[in-house]
């Protein structure tokens, strides 16, 4: 199953729709970002991410 990225929140999933925000997903994405601890991560703060998980850096 190919991995897809949500076009809105950039979360990586295998489903057709994002499980968090229910927006459609796209298989055309690049760059990987794994957030482990969103509360103490500066990167998560910069990108306004508050859920741990895998995200893409760019999605089309």
């Amino acid at each position: 199953m190919s991995q897809k990225s949500c076009t809105s929140c950039k979360r990586i999933t295998t489903k057709e729709r994002c499980s968090v925000c229910n927006n459609p997903t796209s298989s055309n994405w690049s760059g990987l970002l794994i957030i482990i601890d969103p509360e103490s991560s500066d990167i998560a703060g910069e990108l306004n991410i508050n859920l741990p998980g895998e995200y893409s850096l760019r999605v089309r």
Partner: peptide, 26 residues
Amino acid sequence: ERNVARLLARKANESGVGITAIIVPE
């Protein structure tokens, strides 16, 4: 790069190394 990042994320969760985020820029 992606395999290393995912393994590292799993290890960080288990052992608490203090890693908060991993970036794999294309």
